[in-house]
Design a binder for these strands. Sequence first.
DNA 1: CCTTTCATTGAATAAATATTCAATGAATTA
DNA 2: TAATTCATTGAATATTTATTCAATGAAAGG
Lengths: 194, 194
Amino acid sequence: MTTRSDQKEIRRKQILTAALDLLIQKGFAGTKISDIANAVGMSVGLLFHYFDSKERIYEELVQMGFAKSQSMMTANRAEPLAFFENMAELILDQAGNDPFSAKMFVLMSQAAANDFLPEEIRNHLKGDVIRKSAKIIRAGQSDGTIRKGDPLALSVAFWAAIQGICQVIALDADLPCPDSSWVVDILRNKKTGG
Amino acid sequence: MTTRSDQKEIRRKQILTAALDLLIQKGFAGTKISDIANAVGMSVGLLFHYFDSKERIYEELVQMGFAKSQSMMTANRAEPLAFFENMAELILDQAGNDPFSAKMFVLMSQAAANDFLPEEIRNHLKGDVIRKSAKIIRAGQSDGTIRKGDPLALSVAFWAAIQGICQVIALDADLPCPDSSWVVDILRNKKTGG
DNA sequence: CCTTTCATTGAATAAATATTCAATGAATTA
DNA sequence: TAATTCATTGAATATTTATTCAATGAAAGG
């Protein structure tokens, strides 16, 4: 019914989509409000009718990514190695098909530098996932499915690889998305898992 | 002898070092000249005595990274799998010890978005290394040392992992640098290489 | 010493960009 | 159809940040 209200949501989504694209290419400071407005095809003044400031746009996007990231981590209750297999598959399969998803992931990994974000989110970005995963890796080393080595360093390798892949394919859509199982081989113990 | 001239070089290096650090955290647009000047401990006016503009600082850094990247690629004439083993070891060992090196790598991977850089450099950044490596991967698949799969996708996985790791450890010095051999396992063919 | 050079600063100035605002007209409501 | 709301614009305005400049004094050269 409320055509106007629907239209408003559509407009907001258009702005967020265009902004995400520009933000991961140019960063927060490098993305001009006028760039976003141009990409959507609206005047700069109108954009401010939908969002109070550039920061708000950014915050709303990061908030979305944060929520997704949290739910993914907590929803996955698999055994150690399977945990990482699930994660890699979920993220990379989605990244390969839906550009929005990969871009969101990239946004999150760059967002830690931005002072104005809420504390909770900045902590999450600042190695929270990596440290939590290190515990799971230690369990996987005990049950023999994950290779030996510093769990934290292994966690860095896994997540940095995922993040790097998302970044590369988000910035160059022509490049193909790698198999998730290749990435899991960073962790896999060949003596048992082979 | 020429104390003044030496001093000038030292100043320039101070500026470049401080700038690199800020640039990889905040990006080009997000890094203020005054941030750099503060980090070095000099006035903004003095900084302009050493560099004509913010772009020049950036260009000089990217130029350094470009030269290094080129020489690394061409110097390495090993067999396919060994090529990637050498690359991973060279880059990650260096990144683990010398922060400057990892930061330079990160700068390069972010630089592609900046329009004002020379064409040659932008091409190099824009997937040149990934595409050249795909050819080497194909050769490695022929001799059985590298796993099956789309060579370009494998190349994306390898380089994105390297790049992601450099980024994570450059931005958080507390995190440990992973073993280079773990990353090479993205490519390694277990049936033969095990 | 006296002169010249030049590193250094803080205070202008210039440019770029975010944000506000008054005006317009099309859609909604009554 | 008259009144009201609100999406939309382009033109101010405000703010931030890059860049320039004239002045100072310390080092180098003669």
